[in-house]
């Protein structure tokens, strides 16, 4: 009898979203009960943020042509990590000296800053993220053209 009532409730797909929202709410309430959650200080990719740097938030320090040490999980797999922000093209160097927010451009111009964490150590994530965006765009454009 109860199962029939539950099934009847679930067969209306408009009830699915409120049900999922309820489940998430319960989970997050349970999460508060689990507080405090342990925190490990020994984190990957630590960095100090210098808000005054024009390369913020991608400034990992280091003089030009000198590799900065990055605490990656498998250092041996990313030999080029730490070299990216220590090298700027002449155009990027010019922009960093004339604008206060060069760091926000990332790869928006030739020679722009490439975040070494994203593009060296976690490159596969970048590929999947871009693919998700592409898929979403493909669905939206197909539906838009069809209507």
């Amino acid at each position: 009898m109860i199962i029939r009532k539950i099934s009847h409730f679930l067969c209306n797909y408009e009830n699915i979203m409120p049900l999922f929202a309820g489940a998430c709410t319960l989970l997050f309430i349970a999460g508060f009960l689990f507080l405090p959650i342990q925190y490990t200080d020994n984190q990957l990719y630590p960095k100090t943020i210098d808000r005054n740097s024009s390369l913020d938030p991608y400034d990992r320090g280091g003089p030009p042509f000198t590799q900065v040490t990055i605490a990656a999980q498998y250092m041996e797999n990313s030999p080029a990590a730490g070299l990216v922000t220590s090298y700027l093209t002449p155009f990027s160097l010019y922009l960093s000296r004339t604008t206060p927010h060069m760091g926000t451009t990332i790869v928006a111009h030739p020679g722009g800053i490439i975040d070494e964490i994203l593009y060296n150590t976690r490159g596969l994530d970048t590929v999947v993220e871009a693919t998700i965006l592409f898929i979403a765009f493909a669905i939206a454009s197909y539906i838009y053209r069809k209507v």
Partner: peptide
């Protein structure tokens, strides 16, 4: 298979 810090 190694992709930087991400292993397959």
């Amino acid at each position: 298979l190694e992709f930087g810090d991400e292993l397959v």
